[in-house]
Nucleic acid binder design. Structure first.
Length: 397
RNA sequence: GCGUCGGUGGUAGAGUGGUCAAUUACAACAGACUGUAAAUCUGUCGGCUUCGGCCUACGUAGGUUCAAAUCCUACCCGACGCACCA
């Protein structure tokens, strides 16, 4: 019992507010706690970065606590001015519901939505959209401007002379109010959400005189913290098929291995320690550990069988340089130029790109193991390889 | 309301009349190497091309000029400062 609690309250956790002991006491007293995790339903997919907190939520659910997955549909609708690229479009109710459906599917391996203690799903528009201006003002009166300004993000913007908008001040309040509206015992989230979650803690105290606990999770990132940008692009989506998920994990930088084992897999803490030590030895090839990692994670979402198949296919393709089994096929009319065929099928983005690739010696006609050297090559029936990971099979009609 | 500054490629961010399809960094792509789709190194990185060039792009619309991302005018959007503060 004690041991389980200990892992529940340490693994992957960055910090617990007010204290770990506080939470531990409540749990060992046998209390059934209500904990929630807020997610932003803006996109249709969740990625492995989200898994960290969802997984922890699932662990609490297994331990018998009540868990809520909160869809931040209201907060998502407001849009974030810092994100000028998107100028975030307003989500329709339909889109939100659709995303929810996908989320449910994607998280079903970590959370249980049925049984006697199902994870609940709530929407924060339910209470936030009904608030009157006076309610908002009342909320706003609980926080001071300097409290808000303490936030690193705001400090940085002031230094850079970049704007801070009023509604950005409201954000933490809105998110914080979620805790009050649902009357939860605690919240869980990435440590990048610390400020918002603590804001909810303050509100809880002043409005309900309740001590809300907050668990912040470590972020999935390079041990140097530097390479996050690099990994972001490879951040496997939970919608990816087993092969892609496996492959994307393999392309993670080595520094991510330990933290990913801790945050995304179910291996024991003992094994985790072993892996950490192994990595320090110069005789260890990090690749082998990464392969193990990729199988572990892929297994969670696709089952062990598919994960092992994905591993085999990966080894064949990249280690033995063979053509993978399930590649894209398309048919063309006889005599079509290879450029036309590939661009039409969107395997390559433009004709210029095709010429470049040919000049770089990136395209190979696998059936004859021959590099394509001419821009005017006629497409043949068979398999073409572009770069290291793009394959396609052409069929002549 | 007045004033100041600014809006550039996937992002950040240079450039302030021709040498600008636009420095650089990140992302992306390719090659070499390897331990892999890691790391490192090298190259590429708007589109079309008969490889000579051509076309489209630096907030929008006009204008000046042989020539404009760069100058002018109007407009749109934004930030900052000052004033106002019912």
């Amino acid at each position: 019992m004690n041991k389980i609690n200990d892992e529940l309250l340490t693994r992957g956790i960055s910090s617990i507010y007010p204290t770990k002991e506080f939470l531990q006491q409540r749990i060992s007293r046998g209390e059934k706690l209500t904990i929630y995790l807020g997610v932003d339903p803006t996109g249709p997919t969740l990625h492995l970065g989200h898994v960290v907190a969802i997984k922890k939520l699932g662990e609490f659910q297994k331990a018998g606590h009540k868990v809520i997955l909160l869809m931040g549909d209201f907060t998502a609708m407001i849009g974030d001015p810092t994100d000028k690229s998107a100028a975030r479009k307003q989500l329709t109710h339909k889109e939100v519901m659709n995303n929810l459906k996908l989320y449910k599917k994607q998280t079903s391996k970590l959370l249980s939505f049925s049984g006697k203690n199902p994870a609940q799903i709530k929407f924060n528009s339910k209470w936030l959209s009904k608030m009157k201006f006076e309610d908002v003002l009342n909320l706003a009166s609980k926080m001071t401007v300097s409290q808000m300004l303490e936030r690193d993000m705001f400090q940085k913007r002031i230094e850079e002379g970049k704007p801070i908008f009023m509604h950005e001040f409201m954000y933490p309040l809105m998110q914080g109010y979620d805790s009050v509206a649902m009357d939860v015992d605690g919240e869980i989230g990435g440590n990048d959400q610390t400020f918002n979650m603590l804001c909810g803690r303050d509100l809880m105290k002043s409005l309900k005189n309740k001590e809300k606990f907050v668990i912040t999770m470590k972020l999935l990132e390079d041990n140097s913290g530097k390479k996050m940008g690099k990994t972001e692009g490879n951040m496997a989506s939970l919608c990816d098929n087993a092969d892609d998920m496996y492959g994307k994990i393999m392309s993670w930088t080595d520094g991510l291995i330990v933290s990913a084992f801790e945050l995304c897999t179910n291996i024991s803490l003992k094994e985790l320690e072993d892996i950490e030590n192994l990595l320090k030895l110069s005789t260890t090839n990090p690749k082998d550990l990464k392969m193990r990692l990729a199988v572990e994670i892929t297994s969670i979402f696709h089952g062990e069988k598919k994960a092992i198949l994905a591993q085999k296919s990966w080894e064949n393709t990249f280690h033995n340089k063979e053509v993978p089994d399930n590649i894209e096929e398309f048919s063309i009319i006889k005599g079509t130029l290879l450029v036309e065929a590939l661009v039409l099928n969107k395997t390559i983005s433009s004709k210029t790109d095709f010429r470049r690739l040919v000049d770089e010696g990136a395209i190979t006609y696998k059936d004859e193991e021959r590099k394509i050297t001419s821009h005017k090559e006629i497409a043949m029936s068979g398999v073409y390889k572009i770069g290291k990971k793009r394959f396609c099979k052409i069929i002549i009609k």
